[in-house]
């Protein structure tokens, strides 16, 4: 398996109160697959994604991504892990406001070993004509396209998407989902996505339902549909 999570536990302490966010999560995802994690707020899905992405640490358990044991890495090794392997897409895009679209892509290509051509990636996401615009001059959907371009420019092994359509309207969301599916197909990039939206699970190979820090259901989707046909 490309991603393998075993008995992952994580808790936060606020004063005397201990909150268990992850209570022994177990999951796996194959290379080149799309996984969707569904669940209500506070179910632990973002924490799980963050630990897989190497931006948070667990209390116990084991996470392996492409044979790298993420939970054993030092801080510096985690930095390199994110740098070389992971692409992030956020709900609110997280573009750097005073850099142009092109420069926002360069933020990542600048530190990648063998990045894709910026213009080609922008063309692929349909944003080449807006290369010199600033994020403030773009719509939400356009900003998310730039965010996707930024994530894929280094050709990552794993694309982690945290509510990528959470701030977008229906038709823009569908465009974004189409784009993600296309990237998955064209580049073979493994994608793990968090969403509240159950309809999105239709385009995933595997669907994980989370509740109170546990994966209560894992579904292998045999009938993957094209993002264009997703409705909600």
């Amino acid at each position: 398996m490309f991603i393998k999570v075993e008995n992952l536990k994580k808790s936060y302490r606020t004063g005397d109160v201990k909150t268990d966010v992850l209570k022994g999560v177990k999951m796996s995802l194959g290379k080149g697959e799309i996984g969707v994690i569904l669940g209500p707020s506070g179910s632990g899905k973002s924490t799980l994604l963050n630990i897989i992405g190497g931006i948070d640490r667990c209390d116990s358990g084991k996470v392996t991504v492409d044979d790298i044991e993420v939970t054993n890495l030092t801080d510096d090794q985690l930095t390199d892990y994110r740098r070389e392997n992971i692409g992030f897409i956020f709900q609110f895009y997280n573009l750097i406001p005073n850099l142009t679209v092109g420069e926002n892509i360069e933020v990542v290509s600048n530190i990648s070993r063998s990045p894709l051509d910026t213009d080609e990636v922008l063309k692929a996401v349909g944003m080449l004509d807006k290369k010199y615009r600033f994020p403030r001059e773009l719509s939400g959907g356009e900003q998310q396209r730039v965010s996707i371009a930024r994530a894929v420019v280094k050709n990552p092994k794993l694309l982690l998407c945290d509510e990528p359509t959470g701030a977008l309207d229906f038709s823009t969301s569908r465009e974004i989902l189409k784009l993600l599916q296309q990237i998955n197909r064209d580049f073979g990039t493994t994608i793990l996505m968090i969403t509240h939206n159950t309809a999105i699970s239709a385009m995933a190979n595997r669907v994980y339902r989370m509740r109170s820090g546990e994966i209560v259901e894992e579904i292998i989707n045999e009938r993957i549909i094209h993002a264009e046909r997703i409705e909600w």
């Binding site: 992405g53 931006i55 510096d76 930095t79 390199d80 892990y81 994110r82 740098r83 070389e84 992971i86 992030f88 997280n94 750097i96 933020v107 990542v108 530190i111």
Partner: peptide, 16 residues
């Protein structure tokens, strides 16, 4: 603050 945080997420090393 957010950009620095983002750079860290994207894999920028401390010195960078």
């Amino acid at each position: 603050r957010e950009s620095i945080s983002l750079l860290k997420i994207l894999g920028y090393r401390r010195k960078e």
